[in-house]
Computed example of a mutant assay.
Amino acid sequence: MRLLTHNMLSSNMKGVSNGFPLRIEVEKVVEKQVDFNPDFLKNMFSKVHWKALADASRIMGYAELPEEADRSMLDSDDFLRKFHHALLELHLEEGALVCPETGRRFPVNKGIPNMLLHEDEV
């Protein structure tokens, strides 16, 4: 699961008012090379919750992103490459996503998060 995906997921359990961002529990991280596309990154920047991305990348062992970012940084090739690596090349292969409010764990196996809810959680 890419951090791009993580940045768009939240816990939709019944009664949860703040299910974002899901906390990451890491068992295995893999890096998969993806072609660098600065235009895609510039378009995605406004859609990404930066703090959630920066925190998640640190949890997955990548501490190169700044705590805060703004659009002016998109002119830097160095920044774009770090953003690209965190957003698209880091993959949570095995682990879990945890609801920040309830502690409910959603397993991630072979890079696929299982966000299915039990009947009593809907």
Rank of each mutant, 00 (worst) to 15 (best):
N7R: 06
L9V: 08
S10T: 12
S10E: 15
N12W: 08
N12P: 03
M13N: 06
G15D: 04
G15Q: 08
G15F: 11
G15M: 03
G15S: 11
V16W: 04
V16N: 12
V16P: 12
S17T: 15
S17Q: 13
N18P: 00
G19E: 00
G19Q: 01
P21N: 07
P21Y: 02
L22G: 13
L22T: 07
L22H: 12
L22E: 11
L22D: 12
R23W: 07
R23L: 14
E25Q: 13
V26I: 13
V26H: 07
E27F: 04
V29D: 01
V30C: 10
E31G: 04
K32M: 11
K32S: 03
Q33M: 10
Q33K: 15
V34T: 14
D35F: 12
D35M: 11
D35I: 10
D35K: 14
N37E: 15
N37C: 08
N37Y: 13
P38Y: 09
K42L: 05
N43V: 07
F45W: 06
F45G: 05
F45L: 10
S46I: 09
S46F: 09
H49D: 15
W50E: 01
K51L: 00
K51R: 07
A52N: 04
L53T: 01
A56D: 08
A56H: 03
S57V: 02
Y62K: 03
Y62R: 05
E64R: 14
L65Q: 08
L65W: 11
E67W: 08
E68M: 10
D70G: 11
D70P: 02
S72F: 06
M73C: 10
M73V: 03
L74A: 04
L74R: 03
D75T: 14
S76V: 01
D77T: 13
D77N: 12
D77Y: 01
F79N: 14
L80N: 05
L80F: 09
L80R: 09
H85C: 04
H85T: 15
A86K: 02
L87H: 12
E89Q: 15
L90F: 05
L92S: 07
L92C: 14
E93Q: 15
E93T: 07
E93D: 13
E94D: 00
E94M: 01
E94F: 02
E94T: 01
G95P: 00
A96F: 00
A96W: 05
V98W: 00
C99P: 13
P100I: 03
E101K: 02
T102W: 04
T102C: 00
T102P: 09
T102I: 00
G103I: 03
G103D: 13
R104D: 01
R105N: 04
F106R: 11
P107N: 04
P107F: 07
P107A: 01
P107E: 13
